[in-house]
Computed example of a mutant assay.
Amino acid sequence: MFKYPKVNYIGNKEKIAKWICDQFPNDAHTLFDAFSGGCSLSYEAKCRGLEVYTNDILKINYHIANALITNNDVLLDEPDIETIFSGEPMEGFMYENYAEVYFFPQECKELDRYRQNIELLESEEKKSLAFALMRRAMIRKMPYSRFTLNWDKIVQLRDEEYSYKKYKRRRAYHNQSFKHHFLQNLDEYNQAIFSNNKKNVAYNDDIFNLLDTVKADIIYLDPPYTGTMNNYFGFYGLVDDFITSEVTQPFENNFVNKNSAIELFDQLFSKLGNFKYWYLSYNNASYPSKEELLDLLRKYSDDVEVMERKHNYQITGKHKKEKNTEFLFIVKNESYDYTNRHSRKHTVCEATN
């Protein structure tokens, strides 16, 4: 049995991935996870034997998918670890751009060395797995697990005495090394890799560039929830900068702007003809509202159902949570021509909570 590793991704559907996949019809054998993020839903679907196609516009999310969804058997071994962590820290892109912005200068030098070394790994799967683990290490050292704080606040929150005085927790893990966090999670990531005997594929693109070419029984849509804490470029764009050694720019079609959200959803729904079933995750704190989304979806199908479930989003600590209702919109595309035959599904992973 296989288990989804600790990815620590805001908005992750890990806690409700099983519930969502339980709603998939028996005649569905392929899934396109169009906003795959941390890949918890894709991982659950892979466990159930579906052929999974993932997409995310963030490069780090592509690498998570390439490491955990498309990768069938490639692990990081001891020689790989020696390669990644060999040599002396160096002054490179991270040092020049982000020293005393997100990390201390010596830490940025370490990241620059590790980035150079990851390029020496022998396969793309190994590189993706290394990027996913380095992301986990970078996130563990960052207060609130996102790159949206200013440097003074980061320094303050990484002060263990201040943290203990203020929160009764020293949070020593913020000051443990990247290598420590990488190695602490290595076995869990390696053990999460398996084959479900399907040709799973990962994409890294704007969703609107793929809808005419990717075909699947189900498309699962989990876009940023407009009007909520949903700035994924702000949360994780720094990791893309680390990967590309470039200062990346915010992307279009990001579902952040309320002024364009309804038009963007309508444009999205109008292009889903390649999919027999549409599944959309959203919640009651977001815009558009449940009723507005229903109106939009009913332009394209008379067969629309909404399921609801309470779901808590932990934001800043174990006591402060946003309690919301999660909506799952289920649409049957009545104009879809279903002619393909597929093999029987089978479950190979641990059940999700």
Results as ranks from 00 to 15, higher is better:
R171H: 14
G227V: 15
V201D: 06
R344D: 15
Y164H: 12
S281R: 05
V304H: 10
T54D: 11
Y220F: 01
S195P: 08
D112I: 00
K345W: 01
D112M: 02
I57K: 07
P105S: 09
L50Q: 05
R135L: 04
L75M: 13
E326K: 06
N283C: 14
K318R: 14
M229Q: 09
N209L: 07
D337Y: 03
F255N: 07
D22S: 02
L157I: 06
N231C: 03
Y220H: 06
K258R: 15
A285I: 12
I315Q: 02
N190V: 13
G92C: 05
E14Y: 12
Q249E: 13
R158Y: 00
F233D: 00
I218G: 10
V155W: 00
K290T: 03
I262M: 03
A132F: 09
I60L: 10
M1K: 08
Y114N: 00
K15P: 01
N71E: 11
S270F: 06
F85W: 06
G87R: 11
L297S: 14
N175R: 09
A192S: 15
T316K: 09
T30Y: 01
V348S: 13
E82Q: 15
I207D: 07
L272K: 08
E291L: 14
K276Y: 05
Y225Q: 03
E122C: 10
M307S: 05
Y162E: 03
N333W: 07
E160P: 00
N8G: 08
I218M: 14
E124Q: 13
K126I: 15
T248G: 11
V201Y: 10
E252D: 07
F194D: 13
S270I: 07
F269P: 09
G11P: 07
N97S: 06
I207F: 06
N185G: 03
Y220L: 03
I207P: 15
D112A: 05
L268S: 08
I57Q: 01
N26Y: 04
C39L: 06
P5I: 00
C21P: 00
I10K: 10
S286V: 08
I193N: 11
I218E: 12
K215V: 04
I193K: 00
A65P: 10
